[in-house]
Design a protein around this nucleic acid. Structure first.
Length: 281
DNA sequence: CTCCAGGGATCAG
DNA sequence: CTGATCCATGGA
């Protein structure tokens, strides 16, 4: 059992905001698989308790980093709150929303699957994929498949997981990842634009998926993924007209700076929960 | 039945 | 370079 003290951390706002696909609620806690570790995470008063149920055991340092609990979270939020009225509302309403530093290979494959898809189906496909190609950890849970397993998989078998036309992208992507000896330090040591250009060479990866990978694996905090939800809410809040996704990201990175990624996640969560821009039936 | 989902690849111009 | 079209799948 690992105990972490943190005043501002919310399980729902962190795990239900579309950045991750392997966490699910159980009673007052959340359960999920992270790097071969099946854990249950819960709040005890103001502390975070992490109980390993199967697989690898990790220490405080590991979970502190995964959950982005470093001390500047409060000051970053405080800075963003003063940015403008819209962000103030989103941040105050969804306090304790943290970005996660997820494994690069898992984030890459997960967001290749996310293209033109919905969160419920993405989760189902990833669960199927893990059961078929991931290591069994115990308690009915499987690790996310290694790139070796996916690169050697048959496209038809991956299609049977429900991945549809993305099945081919997954195998190609994993193959190139291995061939390139890709890892997070390569992207960490590159500039934002260099890192993005590297990811854009992978099949199934376009501007939006590349930004998601850079942000949700904790590599580039300034990354501002523009999907249909973010596009809608940004057009309403900041543009008041229809705008190209590339322009949205460009504007946001200039406007929010190094913390654009966290701002984006608050706005995404806000837009989705309030169905901003979705015409009522 | 149609429309939509954390878009990308491909092709036309 | 920008813009249109097609792409599996399942739920609403």
């Amino acid at each position: 059992m690992v105990i972490l003290s943190e005043v501002e951390f919310d399980l729902f706002n962190t795990f239900e905001n579309g950045q991750c696909f392997r966490w699910y609620p159980l009673d007052d806690a959340y359960r999920g698989v992270v790097r071969g570790s099946f854990v249950e995470i819960s709040k005890k008063n103001k502390a975070i308790a992490i109980n390993t149920l199967a697989g690898n055991e990790y220490d405080e340092v590991f979970w502190h980093k995964y959950l982005t609990l470093e001390g500047d979270y409060q000051s970053i939020c405080a800075k963003l709150v003063h940015k403008d009225e819209h962000l103030r509302k989103a941040i105050n309403q969804y306090k304790g929303l943290h970005l996660l530093r997820q494994e690069l290979s898992e984030t890459l494959i997960s967001f290749v699957i996310s293209a033109n898809n919905n969160v419920g189906r993405i989760k189902k496909i990833i669960r199927n994929l893990s059961e078929m190609y991931g290591e069994y950890l115990g308690e009915g849970e499987y690790a996310f498949p290694t790139m070796e397993a996916l690169a050697g998989a048959s496209v038809d078998k991956i299609r049977s997981c429900g991945a549809g036309y993305r099945s081919e992208y997954i195998v190609k992507c994993a193959g190139k990842y291995l061939n390139d000896n890709m890892n997070s330090s390569i992207l960490n040591n590159a500039t934002y634009q260099e890192a993005k250009n590297i990811l854009l060479q992978y099949s199934g990866v376009g501007p939006k998926v590349a930004d998601c990978v850079l942000l949700f694996s904790g590599i580039k905090t300034e990354s501002f993924p523009t999907d249909v939800w973010i596009k809608r809410i940004m057009e309403i809040l900041y543009f008041e007209e229809s705008v190209n996704p590339a322009r949205v990201s460009e504007f946001a990175m200039e406007y929010f700076g190094k913390d654009a990624g966290l701002a984006q996640q608050f706005l995404f969560h806000y837009a989705r929960l309030n169905k901003i821009g979705v015409s009522p039936k």
